[in-house]
Amino acid sequence: MKKLFAFLLFGFMFFGLNAQNKSDLPNITLKNLDGQSVNVAEINNDGKPFVMTFWATWCGPCVKEHNALTEVYDDWVEETGVKIFSVSIDDARSTAKIRPFVDGKGWPFEILLDVNKDLARAMNVSNPPHTFLFDGDGKIVWQHTGYLDGGEEDLYQEILKISK
C-alpha cells in the first residue's frame, strides 16, 4: 500500500507539472441548481473580480450575509462588474431545498452545490460563512470568515481596490 502510494504520488507530480493552472481555484466539479456540472477551475468573470462565498441553510450569519449582499448587489455590479458565486455546503438533506430557498429569498447569485464539502475542504474552509475575493485572473486577494452586520462594506472596499 505504501509503495503504491509513493509510486502514484510521484507519477501524479510528474503529470501535474505539465498542466497550466491559471487560477487559485481547484479542479473540482460541482453541480449548479440546474443539475449541470461546473468545473470550479474554469470559473471566471471575464477578467473582472469575483467573489465566492460558502454558506449553508442552517447557518444564520450566512443567510444574513446573503440578504445583505442581495441589497447591494445591483449597485456593486454596476460600479465594478463584480460577480458573486455562492457555494452551499448543505448535505443531501437539503439538496432539493436549495433552489426554492434561494429563489424564495430572492438571492441573485450563481449557486453551486458542494454536497460533500469537496470544494470547502480544498479551499480550507472550516466554518461558514467564509468569503473569498478573487481578482480577474482568479487569484485569491482577500478572504474573511464569519459575518457581522455591515461586514459587506469591508468586502466592497476590497473589491474597489482591485477593480479599475
Binding site: P100, F101, V102, D103, G104, K105, G106
Partner: peptide, 14 residues
C-alpha cells in the same frame, strides 16, 4: 422531492 420556484417564491415537498 418535488419543488417549484420562481423569483421570490420557492416551495418544496419531500
Amino acid at each position: 422531492s418535488l419543488s417549484y420556484s420562481q423569483k421570490g417564491l420557492g416551495m418544496v415537498l419531500q
